[in-house]
């Protein structure tokens, strides 16, 4: 008999969640003080993979952790109910049971499934009883240039349809013109529209022009009540990078130091290798602490990452390099 969600305790679930970030008044002085030295940040990002290394059982555990933090995503114009069902099945059983079982990790799922609004309902159906939340991209994703009232209405519709998480896109022009007040108000409006659903603010960092802008936009979105800040839509030419991540993570740390509130981080796009996932997790651990290696504060927006992790896990168990076709497609 299938267990219900309340009976199943997903191995990745964290016992206690920190209180949700309520936001704060816009502090323009603080925003103006924020600096980000690009070359220094790039140097730190470049040496990071050489500074940290996880091997053997530790590597397997870390990769499983990465799986638990994946927002398994499909955001294509040709998405259908069938396609979303397949994805949701993969989210429920992201790694073959014969691999999970010996590692003591049966029941592991991905962090969430991420879809467009129209796919929320089929996703919720397909995930029934799994405890896996459905995230919806919203607000005229990916460009975010539809009328504001429609963007807000889109959020409300998605929440009504049952999305537990809403990934909004900010208006890049507010950042590029340094109109922090406008960015703050927009983000506030999105947050309010989300109600109890958690809101991830997509900054589209590849379109913000500088790391300093990324840092300042991160801060303003957190002030306006973002639960997560997220790098990219996956549709920009440059998506998640380590330097951008470092900047956003440092902003999260400063916000925590100043307010006591925990804001999550979601790098999205361009992370497709197991090794990259390990680097990201070590970045979170080193810069923010191990608490930020949990799915309530960290997510990967990725579609092809899972496949590489599955192969690495099988290699860990068998000692032989794996092949794609040995793992179920998502």
């Amino acid at each position: 008999m299938e267990k219900t969600a309340s009976e199943t305790r997903l191995p990745q679930l964290v016992a206690e969640h920190p209180p949700r970030n309520p936001g704060m008044a816009l502090d323009l002085d603080w925003v103006a003080r924020v600096q980000a030295n690009t070359s220094a940040i790039e140097r730190r990002a470049k040496t990071l993979p050489g500074r940290r290394s996880v091997k053997k059982a530790h590597q397997a555990a870390w990769l499983l952790k990465a799986v638990s933090c994946i927002d398994l995503t499909t955001l294509s114009g040709d998405d259908t109910v069938g396609r979303v069902q397949r994805l949701c099945a993969k989210a429920r059983q992201p790694v073959r049971e014969d691999i999970l079982e010996p590692l003591g990790m049966s029941g592991l799922t991905t962090g969430a499934v991420c879809v467009y609004h129209d796919m929320i309902a089929p996703a919720i159906d397909a995930l029934q009883g799994s405890g896996i939340p459905v995230a919806a991209v919203s607000t005229g994703f990916p460009a975010g240039l539809s009328p504001l009232h429609l963007r807000i209405a889109e959020i409300e519709e998605s929440v009504k349809a049952g999305a537990a998480e809403i990934d909004i896109v900010i208006s890049r022009r507010h950042v590029l013109t340094q109109d922090w007040q406008a960015l703050y108000e927009e983000m506030r409006a999105f947050r309010d529209a989300c109600g109890d659903a958690h809101v991830k603010a997509i900054l589209a960092t590849g379109e913000l022009g500088s790391l300093r802008n990324v840092a300042r936009a991160s801060l303003v979105c957190m002030m306006a009540g973002a639960d997560f800040i997220k790098t990219s839509t996956g549709k920009e030419s440059v998506n998640a990078t380590l330097p951008v991540s470092l900047v956003m993570i440092r902003a999260i740390r400063d916000y925590l130091d100043a307010t006591g509130y925990h804001v999550g981080y979601k790098p999205a796009g361009g992370i497709s290798k197991a090794k990259d996932a390990l680097i990201y997790l070590s970045l979170m651990k080193d810069e923010l602490g191990v608490r930020w290696c949990q799915p309530d504060l960290f997510r990967f927006g990725a579609s092809s990452l899972l496949g590489d992790i599955e192969r690495q896990l099988e290699h860990h168990l068998t000692g032989a390099y794996s092949a794609n076709h040995r793992h179920a497609m998502g």
Binding site: Q12, A57, A61, L103, G104, L281, V290, C293
Partner: peptide, 9 residues
């Protein structure tokens, strides 16, 4: 074991 490391990271 892996499960423990999964928690402690």
């Amino acid at each position: 074991n892996v499960k423990e490391i999964f928690d402690t990271m």
